[in-house]
C-alpha cells in the first residue's frame, strides 16, 4: 500500500520535472541543454545568478566572463555552458564553505550563443542565469596561438598568480597557467587541456575544486574569492596527466 502510494506520487511528479521552464533567452538549443544537464532535476531561472559579460565578443578566443552567485545561500556547484558552442561545457566549479560562490574565466566562442551559469544549491535546485553573446566566431576551431609559436614549450606549466585582500573579508586570487588548451577541433591538433584545479589553504583545508573543459581560453586566467588562512596552494592536472603546482603567499 505504502509502495503504491509512492509509485503514484512518482507518476504524478515525473512529468512536472520532465518539462523544463520556458527559456527567457529563447535559445533554440534550450530543450537539449535542459535534457543533457538537468534531466529529472529542478531548474529555475533566477536573477540572483549574475553573469557579467559584454554583449559582443571583442576577441572570440578569449571572452571574459565573471559569474557571481553570492546572493544564493548554500551553493554547492556552478556549471557554466554555452548552448551553441560545438563543445558546450566550459567549467564546473565547486566552492567549499571557504570560498565565495563566484568565478572569473575566459572562454572560446564559435558563434553567437547564450552563455549560462547554472548554480546548484544544497536543496538540489539549479538556479540559472545567463545572457546572449554576439560573436563573429571561429574561436573553437582556430588553432591555439601556442600551436603556431612554439613559445609555450619554454613556459608550459608556469603559473603567475597573486592574492589580494578584499574589503568584504574574502581574498581575491587571480592566476594564469601557461597551457595551450587545445580543443581538438582544429585540424591535426588533438585535444589537450587543463582538467582539474584544486585550491587549499595553509592548514591543508580545501577551498575550492574546479573542473575545466576544452572551451576555456588558452593560458587560462581565473579569478576566485577565497577564505582560509595563510598561503594558497594550487594543484592542477591536464588531459595528459601533466601536473601543475604553486603556492601563493598573501
Amino acid at each position: 500500500m505504502r509502495c503504491r502510494a509512492w509509485l503514484l506520487a512518482a507518476a504524478w511528479v515525473a512529468p512536472a520535472l520532465a518539462a523544463p521552464p520556458d527559456d527567457p533567452l529563447r535559445s533554440p538549443a534550450w530543450p537539449y541543454m535542459a535534457e543533457r544537464y538537468f534531466a529529472g532535476q529542478t531548474v529555475r531561472f533566477d536573477a540572483a545568478v549574475r553573469v557579467l559579460m559584454a554583449g559582443a565578443a571583442e576577441d572570440p578566443l578569449a571572452v571574459p566572463v565573471h559569474v557571481d552567485a553570492d546572493a544564493l545561500a548554500d551553493v554547492r556547484e556552478i556549471l557554466v555552458f554555452a548552448d551553441l558552442n560545438p563543445i558546450t561545457t566550459i567549467l564546473r566549479y565547486e566552492p567549499s564553505e571557504l570560498a565565495r560562490p563566484a568565478i572569473g574565466f575566459r572562454f572560446k566562442v564559435q558563434q553567437a550563443t547564450p552563455l549560462r551559469a547554472a548554480v546548484r544549491t544544497g536543496d538540489g535546485v539549479w538556479h540559472l542565469g545567463g545572457a546572449w553573446l554576439d560573436a563573429s566566431g571561429g574561436g573553437c576551431t582556430t588553432p591555439s596561438q601556442a600551436s603556431g609559436s612554439g613559445l609555450w614549450k619554454d613556459r608550459f606549466g608556469e603559473i603567475d598568480a597573486r592574492l589580494w585582500p578584499r574589503a568584504d573579508g574574502w581574498r581575491r586570487l587571480r592566476l594564469q597557467l601557461i597551457h595551450p588548451m587545445d580543443t581538438g577541433l582544429a585540424g591535426g591538433i588533438p585535444a589537450f587541456y587543463l582538467e582539474t584545479l584544486d585550491l587549499r589553504d595553509a592548514d591543508g583545508r580545501t577551498l575550492a575544486h574546479l573542473q575545466t573543459f576544452e572551451p576555456v581560453a588558452e593560458n587560462p586566467l581565473l579569478s576566485f574569492d577565497l577564505g582560509g588562512r595563510g598561503v594558497v596552494s594550487i594543484r592542477g592536472r591536464d588531459t595528459q596527466a601533466n601536473r601543475f603546482a604553486g603556492t601563493v603567499a598573501p
Binding site: A54, E58, D59, A62, P64, G157, E158, I159, D160, A161, R162, R174, L175, Q176, L221, I234, F244, A245, G246, T247, V248
Partner: peptide, 20 residues
C-alpha cells in the same frame, strides 16, 4: 577588452620555480 589584458597579467607574479 582591448587594453586590460596586458595590465592584469602584469599585475600577477610568477610563482617561484622551487614551489613547482
Amino acid at each position: 577588452a582591448h587594453l586590460y589584458p596586458a595590465l592584469e597579467t602584469q599585475a600577477l607574479r610568477r610563482l617561484a620555480p622551487d614551489v613547482r
